[in-house]
Design a protein around this nucleic acid. Structure first.
Lengths: 253, 253
DNA sequence: CCTGAGAAGTGGTCTATGCCACTTTCTATC
DNA sequence: GATAGAAAGTGGCATAGACCACTTCTCAGG
């Protein structure tokens, strides 16, 4: 881990530690107090706090104080992959690990995760089921460097992002793409659908608070059982952007 | 327009104007210059710029300057219905009307629009093209009752929601679903892809400010040229929701 | 003609300070 | 005892200035 040269980063790391060690809703020291504790000026403190507020890890209330955000929840949901998609019928999710290993990233995955093709990654392939029936085939990649101590159990566990957080990785943002495809032979047999059946290909690249690529996920969802539903609100907000809120039902990814 | 009391907001608005009136990639005045022009301090400028950088409207390069970001197109997009999907390559959209009529809703459409199957609706089928090449096949339905005076020209026009507004219909919300499918014979020939090629089926039901169903759209998008990209920000906000901001380039839906 | 050193301009970081606005708490008054 | 008001503590906004790091351009020297 690189030594924080920039004060702002030092402050941010300090705050991240506070966030980790405090329950959601707990207040953190006042800005002027932090100034003294960390020997930096208030604007520097404010800048760091602001970043974490934007990430949803802290919340500020004028006149009251700054608090560890509900983000607990956020986190969980995030762990929900922040899939903007929700199961057509929200049943009970479970998953079966098909394969797991610590292997070199390879060209394709390495490029996406911004690591050398020779760099080790944690890899896991899972079959995800809803009410016991196959729904999706998921391939997950996490650079070994990002979470050296990550165990298979961590990756199998329900709330994966929660585990990552315990390893000091604070997931902050993800870019996801979705495109239609059809299943190939092996996917068909694993998912229990005919070859060439319609499916959705999800790709997600997740970034942490430090801007590192921490996760690359490639998943195939059955088209006959999975549908993306989103509610589009055509309202104000910054000109030219549309806020969409997709409620995701209970699934832990 | 509300008077900007806060300098920071005044600066932001000024910058937004610069962004609108300058092509992507164009440099904006240096921070120190903006200070003088707007009579504010540099931190204030920087704060405003930072906000717009985070929104993807500006991009900064150390030692070079600050520039209008590629994403500038963001603007036109809202009229874009807030489709959360954006073309993989943002080209020039156009459309060709294949069919139009005022016909009874029928059972399927009537149910979705909450009108009697015998009630008249405006119907239009369009082929939507990007850079002259077919991208999607769209079927649009609007209850005649909702907008009695709607003309074919209105439905052909680029900014359809704008026309609706002129008819007193204020679109407020939409529920959209997306699922993978494959194209059938007629779709294949219209879109210029092989039969059974992967595609996305969009269905959108739009509601106006009075809670009336005002539009039902059914579209087939080519899977080889269309991809949904979304940026998931894992921040606070209500439990279990994901805010997505999708910048959509130019297309009017 | 080419090259390298330096100047100028840009964003990046940080400090020290002041005042405002909101919330909470305590206190003095009724 | 209840209430209005002051005080203290918090975040919000803004300033002026300094210095650093990076990029680009220019011009002198080879």
């Amino acid at each position: 881990m690189a030594e924080a040269i920039l004060k702002r980063e030092r402050v941010r790391d300090y705050l991240l530690e506070l966030i980790e060690t405090h329950p959601a809703g707990a207040p953190i020291p006042a800005e002027r107090v932090l100034c003294q504790q960390l020997s930096v000026s208030r604007p520097t403190i404010r800048s760091a706090v602001e970043e974490l507020v934007n990430l949803g890890l802290l919340s500020r209330q004028h006149g009251r104080g700054t608090f560890v955000a509900r983000a607990k929840i956020t986190q969980e949901m995030v762990s929900d992959t922040g899939s903007m998609s929700l199961p057509q019928a929200s049943g009970t999710w479970s998953s079966r690990v098909l394969e797991h290993a610590r292997i070199p990233a390879g060209a394709r995955v390495g490029r996406r995760l911004h690591v050398s093709p020779a760099a080790d990654i944690h890899y896991i392939a899972r079959l995800r089921l809803v009410d016991g029936e196959p729904m999706a085939l998921e391939h997950l990649h996490v650079p070994a460097l990002v979470a050296p101590g990550l165990t298979l159990h961590d990756m199998e566990s329900g709330d994966f992002y929660e585990r990552l957080r315990e390893h000091g990785v604070h997931v902050s943002e993800a870019v996801q793409s979705i495109e239609p495809t059809v299943v190939n032979d092996s996917e068909a047999s694993l998912l229990g659908v005919p070859v060439l059946a319609p499916a959705l290909l999800f790709e997600r690249l997740t970034t942490d608070a430090q801007g590192r690529q921490v996760e690359y996920v490639h998943s195939i969802y059955r088209g006959d059982r999975y549908r993306i539903v989103s509610r589009l609100t055509l309202g104000a907000s910054p000109r030219n952007t549309v806020d969409m809120q997709a409620r995701v039902s209970g699934d832990p990814f």
